[in-house]
Design a protein around this nucleic acid. Structure first.
Lengths: 344, 344
DNA sequence: CCCACCTGAGAAAACCTTTTCCCAACCCGC
DNA sequence: GCGGGTTGGGAAAAGGTTTTCTCAGGTGGG
């Protein structure tokens, strides 16, 4: 290992530039540029010759130089505080999918819940002249720990609380809840309980309200939803509350759960009591977290928030904003989808 | 909506440039640049005045222009085929963490298992002149569906199969398995079974071998590992195989599982049989997927692969490669860590 | 035969920053 | 008063591309 030699780059030869292409084709850089971009006027023969030369040399335009000139970097940032990516990764997949074949790449920035980190990432992105930012999170009713309101570049909020006057995309939680409850009704269920997360979450109320509305519309008795945690353990405990009392006729014949983990806890607890799912009691979850939904016994019917679609829409919305199309501010709700497996 | 008006940008004013700072401070751009970068010679008073002006104007250097000049974009790509991010997100967090305060941002590119998509992403990244690429995946013994071997920029492989002669970082699976088995021994367990994933995975063999080695070293009888799927269902079934036979004395007193989902299945099945964990049988999982490990009853002891550290190391390795430091090629194994909860 | 117009292609500016080189002025010693 | 060194700061090139402007030569009409 000769330390005195100059530090050996992996592979020395720099990328081929337009100037080299032009030289090789015997034209000026201007002509070469125009030939490759289909601009300007020249004989078809010249254009083709230049193109062929470029192809042969493996020329690829330096995106940095292009960006500098066009004031457009073909780069966007995805800001999230969802460390485990439970929500932001499907969303990211959608964003990326919508943008990749327009040549746009995505910076993923996890800011945890740290304002300093958020600041750092946002500044890095601005310095790199991202064309826009998609802000996302792990819940709909909280802001990211960064201020994106005066940014000079477009921002789209997806699955997180938007700033006033901004463009926001969220899932239609009420609609999703309706899907679940209506599925139960279709199956002939009449006493439909609701076990969900903590009171502090806005979606808890949105979904509970929709649950109650559907029951009312169908002339069925309503009750209070059971609020707790987003955990299996709470699902377990809730079954005790619902099915612990003697008198089988008071028992629900269906449980609509606020997320899949609760649903899993419910199903496990029901099985432990010898109550059959779905024969005796139907169970439907929320989120359609496949890894959980498919592991429950029986596999869990669940409401899917279509996060990838949400991401795609967010990507497209951001893109049109970047291109100067005015977009109607405000929150747009995208429909959920019921994934029917076996539990309800 | 007046379509004839020029498309209204969200906020028109362009970022402030060095030229503007220089003009405001009454100096040339050269001097301004040197003042801000601590280069060149000038009176302390001049330097301070320029800095103050820049601060006042909110000047931030255009990273694109800097990159063009320095041939260094302060940008890297993270390539993965792990759609749900189970492994790549913690890794990404590590990479990002190692790089963010050096001003380096990370493009996340999910290529699924689609070579076309891989090609697309890699070309986009190369065009954007990323300084290097971290390749990662969802298993250690498979290549990504892209060829990164002749790329002109450094590539580091983390948690995926490296190209020959490249720098690769993986978890020390054998060491991780040893941690688990030795924990059992420490607790006085003597009949330690191993339930793991499909034969086609290299880690299945690595971990099984380490498991057997530790048993041998301690003069304990060894058996064949139970190979199956990476699922709860398989964990369930495996318990039938292990504990189905009559004769309690033949039963294992510990089960080392190839991942947390199998472990969960095992624990659930044991409980259904009235076998207590950890009193009668200890269970240890692998991956330390918190969401699973903490939901099992009792909470699951599990081997953590330290993916964030792996990512951090990958980021640092890539960085030194980018800076021209020669790095020893070959695979480096990073230690795992046992997270003790209650199951074993 | 001359002028107007068109065609094909090149020169140069622009994007923004960094860095090298250069120059004017000043200070010092002699 | 003058040469040599130092000090503070500017001019210009470089990086790679796009776009506008310009220009030379050719063509057609009058």
């Amino acid at each position: 290992m000769s330390a005195d030699a100059e530090p050996a780059p992996v592979s020395a030869k720099p990328p081929v530039t337009l100037r080299e292409v032009a030289a090789a084709a015997g034209v000026s850089v201007a002509t070469a540029s125009k030939a490759l971009n289909g601009q300007g006027r020249m004989t078809a023969e010249t254009r083709e010759r230049i193109r062929e030369t470029a192809r042969l040399l493996g020329f690829r335009p330096n995106s940095l130089a292009q960006s500098l000139l066009r004031k457009r970097s073909f780069t966007v940032g995805l800001l999230t505080n969802d460390t485990y990516g439970r929500f932001s990764l499907p969303l990211m997949a959608g964003v990326s999918d919508a943008l990749v074949d327009k040549g746009v790449s995505v910076f993923l920035c996890n800011v945890e819940d740290d304002p300093r980190l958020g600041q750092l990432h946002v500044e890095a992105m601005l310095d790199k002249r991202v064309d826009g930012i998609v802000a996302t999170g792990k819940r709909i009713d909280r802001h990211l720990p960064v201020d994106l309101s005066n940014l000079r570049i477009p921002v789209v909020y997806a699955f997180t609380q938007p700033d006033p006057g901004a463009v926001g995309l969220v899932s239609d939680d009420a609609g999703g809840a309706r899907l679940a409850v209506e599925q139960f009704l279709r199956l002939g269920r009449r006493r439909i309980a609701h076990v969900t997360g903590p009171e502090s979450f806005a979606v808890v109320h949105t979904r509970a309200e929709a649950w109650r509305d559907v029951l009312k519309e169908n002339g069925l008795p309503t009750a209070e939803p059971l609020l707790g945690a987003w955990s299996e353990a709470w699902g377990h405990d809730a079954v005790e509350k619902l099915f612990g009392k003697a008198g089988r006729e008071g028992w629900p014949d269906a449980v609509f759960c606020g997320n899949d983990q609760i649903a899993r806890g419910v199903i496990d607890a029901l099985r432990e009591r010898g109550i059959r799912v779905p024969e005796d009691v139907g169970v439907i979850g929320f989120d359609n977290w496949e890894i959980v939904a498919e592991a429950t016994r029986p596999p869990l019917t669940s409401v899917d928030m279509n996060l990838a679609s949400l991401g795609r829409e967010a990507g497209l919305a951001l893109l049109s904003l970047v291109e100067g199309q005015p977009a109607a501010p405000g929150i747009r709700k995208l429909p959920c989808r019921l994934v029917v497996r076996q539990s309800g």
